[in-house]
Design a protein around this nucleic acid. Structure first.
Lengths: 206, 206
DNA sequence: GTCTATAATGCGATAGAC
DNA sequence: GTCTATCGCATTATAGAC
């Protein structure tokens, strides 16, 4: 994947403070634009317009469209990682934290739209974010597999539930629910449906 | 959604036989091109190139890019409907037929890619296929809800499984598995994972 | 750090000849 | 029914002024 140089000094009062603030607002706009139109159809022009600067000005901060996408994805993952305590509470805790995350997710439709559109269009190997998504899915399913294996070892997994298959299913369920939710936000409750699914897998429910 | 006039006489030996054959090959190519790049990024130029004619020639048969997409979607649904006996065997039969369909689906990655990319990008209301997908999801979840309700009435649904939520989950699972399968076809078996999920919902398994 | 200007390409769609 | 030619517009990216 294409990368972009970032200033070494990152503090809000460092020598690149202004530049950093500009980068942030570019990333915000990129999230919106790519979220609405996907990466391929979303245009740098649209991002520049929304952030209130020229395309050339934008390209001073991110050397190419792909570099901008990479930065958006990386920032989003950092934020998510920082926000949730994945490591607390063992397998059951991990599943509960996931439900919380999905619940929180419903407050940022733009982000959901971005990841939804992007993960679909990035299935093609030639897509600039293909490698990123491949690795992300591997990491995520491995995380859930570990959680289910932990539950299984304690005898808290329902009979017949296979950790690897169940982990793929959980990830798939979240992805698929996002589509239905985006199509009709009023009649789909992603967190509730996920919780119901998980409760069916764990002895005694979630 | 934008529509396109089709000749009234549709038989292979009718007066429009040649035109009909041309239309078919255009639809085939469109399926491939839109499948690889999505609708927004796939180009009429690419479709025309693959079918071996000019853009203008293509636009003689389908008056716009959206009209072409509409025709592709409609034809695909016709084919699917014709191929599977959804109405046989009650609720359990419907679920089994779905597993068969998914198994069959794995032999046409291009089609999977098209629907995957398209259903994601069509979540935006301004997309030409938005209405089509909205209705399609409503129909599909209603179908599964009916199947689960039938099973529930016979006491064959596992305790705690709610038909409406379960139907959303089944559709979501299929969509999500498609993404993972497209990313890594060797390590994901969509039909097997779906069967495992469904077996967990029905008393005595599928 | 941001701008204008521009290059080079690709797009969907139309007009009109054959 | 298919073509060539073309319009008008959007796109990513670069060069160079300020």
């Amino acid at each position: 994947m294409v990368t972009d140089q970032t200033p070494v000094r990152r503090g809000p009062r460092g020598p690149y403070a202004k530049s950093r603030r500009t980068r942030q607002s570019i990333l915000d706009s990129a999230l919106t634009v790519f979220g609405e139109s996907g990466f391929r159809s979303g245009s740098l022009r649209g991002v520049a317009e929304q952030v209130g600067m020229s395309e050339a000005g934008l390209l001073h901060h991110f050397s190419s469209k792909s570099a901008l996408l990479a930065a958006v994805l990386e920032r989003r993952d950092e934020q998510t990682r920082a926000q949730f305590g994945w490591d607390d509470g063992g397998g059951r805790g991990a599943l509960r934290a996931t439900v919380d995350l999905v619940e929180h997710t419903a407050s940022t439709p733009g982000v959901v739209e971005l990841f939804c559109t992007l993960s679909a269009e990035a299935t093609t190997p030639s897509h600039p974010a293909h490698a990123w998504f491949t690795e992300r899915y591997a990491t995520t399913t491995a995380f859930f597999r570990a959680a289910f294996e932990e539950l299984s070892a304690r005898g808290e997994l329902r009979e017949g539930v296979e950790p690897a298959a169940a982990s793929r299913a959980v990830v798939a369920l979240m992805d698929g629910l996002q589509i239905q939710w985006l199509l009709d936000r009023d009649s789909v409750d992603m967190a509730a449906d996920l919780r119901a699914h998980l409760s069916g897998l764990v002895v005694g429910g979630l």
